[in-house]
Amino acid sequence: MGSIHPHDLGTVLDEDGIAVRAGHHCCQPLMRRFGISGTTRASFYIYNTEQEVDKLAHSLERAKTLFDACAPGTFKVQESPKPASEPSKKTQKK
């Protein structure tokens, strides 16, 4: 997800009703070892559906559109983002 900060990503996903864990995960030494400030972690379990996975992917794309050009010092004018396809509709068409 490029340089998007885990907490920014977590908030965007939260807006879409997706719960993830973001940050240190109580492992600061590991994060230091990797030289990162944190990670965003999505976990799946038996109750998660395929649609929910699509929703996550869609939401990640949205976060990328929102933040991709925004890393400090790397701003570039972004082409108008293509509207991400709505995954649930796709599934219905099948």
């Binding site: 920014d8 908030t11 965007v12 807006e15 879409d16 869609h58 939401s59 949205r62 929102l66 933040f67 050009a69 925004c70 890393a71 400090p72 010092g73 790397t74 701003f75």
Partner: peptide
């Protein structure tokens, strides 16, 4: 499924990408 405009307003992203 709308962008959290209120949180990530353009002015915030502008300061983020070109901090003063």
């Amino acid at each position: 499924m709308e962008i959290p405009d209120e949180l990530y307003r353009e002015v915030i992203l502008d300061h983020y990408r070109s901090p003063r």
